[in-house]
Amino acid sequence: MISRDDVVQVARLARLELSEAELERMRRQLDGILAYIDQLKALDVAGVEPTSHAVPLTNVMREDEAAPCWPQEEMLANAPDRAGELFRVPRIIED
């Protein structure tokens, strides 16, 4: 069963602020979904290769050719806050 502490820890990893009420509701819902997912444990997957891609492609690469960059203003246009040519963010405190 997923604990409240687990939910707090995961919310922190996911950068999601959850209210007390949301925390408990989230815990309950995740618990239900995880219980459903736990049916996978019944399957024997010993020696089974994992699938990470649905189509078996390999070695897709591009040549090392420099293309023109995008106009600086276009790349900054969506910024919620900026200082001239730079994106601006509130002060950084490590976690």
Binding site: M75, E85, L86, F87, R88, V89, P90, R91, I92
Partner: peptide, 11 residues
């Protein structure tokens, strides 16, 4: 870093 009120990003 410790005292900055804000930081600026260049990508």
């Amino acid at each position: 870093l410790e005292t900055a009120r804000a930081s600026l990003v260049d990508y």
